[in-house]
Computed example of a mutant assay.
Amino acid sequence: MSADQSENESEEPEEAEGTEEDTEEESAEEEDPIAGLGEALKVGDVVFTANGTSTAGSVGDVLTAEAKGTFLIVDVTIKNEGSDSITVDSSFFKLKVGDVEYDSDSSAGLYANEGADFFLTKLNPGLELPGKVVFDVPQDVLDSDDILLNVQTGFFGTQQGEIKIQ
């Protein structure tokens, strides 16, 4: 029986593994911070700010894009605080309303942005890029009090954060 007792004693470090899981959960919470409208949110080496929102049935001056629902246009600024250039793309933004997730409309984004866009645009260190991210959503989405803009730092979304825009 003393052999069984020593086996049980050697299994005790399993409790420490639970502690590691708790630490990992806390780290995950820190990686997904939530900011408010007008607040800078640092995700990795990138700072995102949602400056404001507007709605429209269409976007563009000469060439236009028509919404199937309503365009929710988010005015954002991205700043590269890293030491290498980054690629910015509208696909790095998603709109979350409860459990429903909406992708940005990249073609409408091209029409909405005059002189700046978020279509595979390079951004060098220390520089900012203002622009608009456009989402085509049903009208009832705009009535929600809990609309989050999910932001990520790259194509694979390994670093993410959220900005409450409504």
Rank of each mutant, 00 (worst) to 15 (best):
G44D: 02
V100F: 06
E39T: 01
Q139T: 06
D117W: 09
E11S: 13
T23L: 14
K79R: 09
L120M: 15
D45L: 02
A35L: 13
V151C: 01
E39Q: 01
L148I: 10
D89G: 02
L120V: 12
D117F: 08
L123E: 12
T49D: 06
L72C: 02
E9F: 15
G98D: 14
Y111N: 04
G38R: 06
E20N: 12
F93S: 03
K132P: 06
D146Y: 03
G154C: 04
G98R: 14
V46P: 06
D61K: 08
G131H: 05
D22A: 13
N80I: 02
L110H: 05
E81A: 00
V133P: 02
E15H: 08
T121E: 12
L41R: 00
E12C: 10
F135T: 00
A108F: 14
L95Q: 09
E114I: 14
S106F: 14
N150R: 09
S58C: 00
L129H: 10
N150D: 11
L148S: 10
L37C: 10
E29M: 13
F92D: 03
N150G: 02
I34P: 07
S144D: 05
A112M: 12
T19R: 06
V47Y: 13
E15V: 04
N113C: 06
T49A: 02
G60Y: 07
E20Q: 13
E26V: 14
G161T: 03
A112G: 06
E9M: 13
G161I: 00
E20I: 14
D4C: 14
S85Y: 14
M1N: 04
T153K: 09
E25N: 07
D89I: 07
G161W: 13
A16M: 12
V100G: 05
S2A: 11
F135H: 07
F92Q: 08
D99V: 09
G69D: 04
S54K: 08
G109L: 08
G109W: 13
S144E: 01
P33A: 03
P130L: 11
D140R: 04
E25D: 09
V59E: 07
V59R: 08
A3H: 14
S91V: 10
T64L: 06
L142S: 06
F135R: 11
E81C: 03
E25Q: 07
N51T: 01
D103E: 14
E66H: 01
S144N: 02
E17L: 15
L129R: 12
S104E: 09
A40W: 10
E12M: 13
E17Y: 15
Q139M: 09
D4P: 08
L95C: 06
V97N: 00
E15P: 01
G52L: 04
A56N: 03
E25W: 13
K122Q: 15
D117N: 09
E26F: 14
D45V: 01
F71M: 00
L148P: 11
V43S: 00
G18L: 05
D4L: 15
G44Q: 01
V76A: 02
G57K: 03
E81L: 02
S106C: 08
M1D: 00
G115L: 12
E7A: 05
K68Q: 01
I163C: 03
D99H: 11
G57T: 03
P125N: 09
V62P: 00
S106N: 11
K122I: 12
G161F: 12
E9N: 11
